[in-house]
Write a protein that binds this DNA or RNA. Structure first.
Lengths: 236, 236
DNA sequence: CAGTGGTCTAGACCACTGG
DNA sequence: CAGTGGTCTAGACCACTGG
């Protein structure tokens, strides 16, 4: 097919051939592409080499494979962006010797409408609740509120959150089957800005993270990060 | 080493063995792990099978490999979060029949300090500049400012941005070698809030995206999205 | 130099799918 | 049934690193 071998590995040629076919719409979403055996024959390589090309593209999400059926062009992945967080409640304690935190609240509360819909429970149900402010070098970097379903994490209120952050404890006691995130810009209320030592009207990032276990929400963590600290740079 | 074979593939056993060694701190960050040949011997498999285990963990970022030197335990990857954007200037036009936009500016300007550092050029250099507000059903969803290096995209100002968004045009004329993103919470100035019909003090997400071509920044796009529209939910 | 990871081969057996 | 992808083997040659 393609000439100009230049010493690129053979599987790389097959990969770019496949990519070209997809980009030029010769093969469309849902189409079945040639089998490993077919590609091996066409490119005069062993099946393992052809397989490597196809497999790497499948790992990348470009192709979908299914035994017995074949390999198909996948839907283009949704446009997404990877956000690197300065921290998300984990490791705060250990990496920085200047770290400290303030525990603002640690109690049982009745879920208001907002929290109830977040946790998928009914309004008024009792839940565990914590608010911690993470501080490094006297600067409040993150305000972290957790709402936890008591039945699933019964010992939540009895932990020492001076030594382990609520999020880290949750990660330790349970392995969520799913995690979701939501990012939003907010102007926090005066209670929050006060706790963080911010000006009254400051734009902040609010990141809400939920831990799921078999269709149930175990916990929701809401972090508030001052907007003036840029949150992340990353390539995708 | 491990018994209980259950019919899991052999490379999977080797992978979990390696993961365990790392998680239990038997092997620490920077340590050299056994070579492919060594693992093949220890687990009584062919080198290709041992290699697969090591390679998949390296692809995942757990290990770093280097020919001649060996394979090493990598730094734990930074905690990150995947953000799905409702749109980033692409496809706005085509998916929704109620879409329209308003072109606020389309001109050549001198780079101020901020933009100069963003594009890695010197202050005062002339650049192309556009500001477009994306509207769906009379609601302004996104304010999109682009700063473009003229030499690399000479025809930028001559496009019809009623038919194609600036970001989509840029994606079309160039294939960046790198893209980076930055997310920040801001309270936009009155010019911007006015253009979007927002209250004067509204928290917004500001997403800055840069397209790179061989170490040079070709363009920077700054999008402002009202904070009240939640931006994305995703699992990671 | 011996050892490392990177690439590649020509076979093999398997569970699975469709017709 | 013939064809698919998933796993695996026992070899091979290579460029590269350190001592």
């Amino acid at each position: 097919m393609t000439e100009a071998t230049y010493s690129l590995p053979r599987y790389a040629h097959i990969k770019s051939y496949i990519r070209n076919q997809i980009e030029s719409k010769q093969w469309r979403v849902g189409d079945c592409i040639p089998s490993e055996n077919r590609l091996a024959e066409d490119f005069s390589v062993s099946r393992m080499t052809a397989r490597r090309a196809v497999q790497e593209l499948a790992d990348q999400g470009l192709l979908l494979r299914s035994v017995g059926m074949g390999t198909f062009v996948a839907e283009p992945p949704p446009l997404s962006l990877s956000l690197e967080l300065p921290d998300f409640g984990e490791q705060f304690t250990f990496t920085n010797p200047h770290y400290s935190n303030r525990i603002i609240r640690l109690d049982t509360v009745a879920a208001d409408r907002d929290v109830a819909s977040l946790l998928k429970i009914t309004e008024g149900d009792l839940i565990y609740h914590s608010v911690v402010v993470h501080v490094i070098n006297s600067i409040a970097l993150q305000w972290e509120a957790c709402f936890v379903t008591p039945t699933l994490v019964p010992a939540y209120l009895k932990q020492n959150y001076q030594k382990v952050t609520p999020q880290a404890y949750l990660n330790w006691v349970l392995t969520p089957s799913r995690i979701d995130h939501q990012v939003q810009a907010v102007i926090p209320d005066t209670e929050t800005t006060g706790a963080m030592g911010l000006a009254t009207l400051s734009a902040c990032l609010q990141i809400t993270r939920r831990n799921w276990l078999q269709g149930e929400v175990v916990s929701a963590t809401r972090c508030i990060i001052p907007g003036s600290h840029k949150v992340g740079v990353d390539l995708d």
